[in-house]
């Protein structure tokens, strides 16, 4: 388990307080950044998908990453979490340079992500999905695997921890169900719970609300807020402005691969540049939910 920052108060109030004096300009320096990225760029063919000069993510806050379709948000996520390699750029996590670090190492260091298309492991039970998140399991080593008494105790402890999380996410009655039999919203919840099972310092949620039944939206929002209240940093990609306004402490706006604005939600939404970026492509962003099903074809239908 990575150490939580205990030298500072946590929660919404603390985050707002800490971000109060931060200048509302792209690439603004934060008082206590957990992630700092410099000159990160990624090109697909002739298209520059991401070209971020400088960006910092405040520790213990909920930061929203917004922008019209094709702004490069998911690509930036992929780059920061090591799932894709940038053409240029460096970034640090907890003041440690992590450019070029393998994605599974970053996850172990405490940077855990979820995916736009929910990746519930369908033909595995809910509890097995959760247990996969636990760190340092000796039973995951191939030689120990055949000697159950070396991992039984650890397995029991992990199971208890998983049950606590599942109860919190209201999935405790489904532990033996196949994850594939859950509804879309429940899968999102499971994915989030599973990410917390890793014991992350920062959770990066890629469109946590996409495809979720509106009735579940409020409870999902509550869960995200709770994550922050416990001192975990949250960075999430979202389209829904209302939701962004409701839960985020800080908003970073991307368009055409660049960070074009930053600030608290109220200020950002009044920013003429942001309005312009969105107005030009309002239509495009409304299409995203359908758009995910297009990509699902090539993914073998994970949607």
């Amino acid at each position: 388990m990575p150490a939580k920052t205990d030298h500072m108060a946590t929660g919404h109030a603390a985050a707002v307080e800490a971000l109060r004096d931060v200048p509302q300009v792209p690439g603004a320096p934060k008082p206590d950044p957990v992630v700092i990225a410099d000159h990160v760029s990624r090109q697909f063919g002739g298209l520059k998908a991401v070209d971020v000069a400088h960006v910092e993510i405040q520790r213990g806050a909920i930061t929203a990453l917004i922008g019209p379709n094709g702004a490069g948000k998911t690509t930036l996520f992929n780059l920061l979490t090591g799932f894709d390699k940038p053409d240029t750029g460096t970034w640090t996590f907890n003041d440690k340079s992590v450019a070029g670090t393998a994605p599974h190492r970053l996850a172990r260091m405490g940077m855990v992500r979820t995916f736009q298309l929910t990746k519930a492991l369908s033909r595995m039970s809910v509890i097995d999905n959760m247990l996969l998140g636990a760190h340092g399991q000796s039973g995951e080593r191939v030689l120990n695997a055949l000697v159950p008494f070396t991992w039984r105790g650890q397995e029991r402890a992990n199971r208890e921890r998983a049950m606590v999380l599942l109860e919190r996410f209201n999935l405790h009655e489904k532990i033996d169900d196949f994850a594939g039999s859950l509804s879309g919203g429940q899968r999102k919840l499971l994915e989030m719970a599973r990410a917390l099972m890793v014991g992350p310092e920062i959770v990066m949620l890629d469109e946590p609300m996409a495809g979720v039944n509106p009735a579940l939206t409020q409870s999902l929002l509550g869960h995200i807020k709770n994550i922050r209240e416990e001192g975990t940093t949250v960075l999430f990609v979202e389209h829904d402005m209302d939701m962004v306004h409701d839960i985020s402490d800080w908003v970073i706006v991307m368009a055409q691969g660049q960070v074009i604005a930053e600030g608290p939600p109220d200020a950002v939404m009044k920013n003429p540049q942001v309005i312009e970026a969105y107005l030009g492509s309002r239509h495009g962003s409304a299409l995203t939910d359908d758009g995910t099903s297009l990509t699902a074809d090539s993914q073998g239908g994970n949607a």
């Binding site: 697909f44 063919g45 998908a49 998911t74 690509t75 996520f77 992929n78 799932f83 894709d84 995916f115 736009q116 298309l117 890629d206 090539s298």
Partner: peptide, 14 residues
């Protein structure tokens, strides 16, 4: 070296 082939394009993850 180049899984997408000589004339292929790269694809985004996730």
């Amino acid at each position: 070296v180049r899984p997408q082939g000589l004339l292929g394009r790269k694809e985004r993850v996730g």
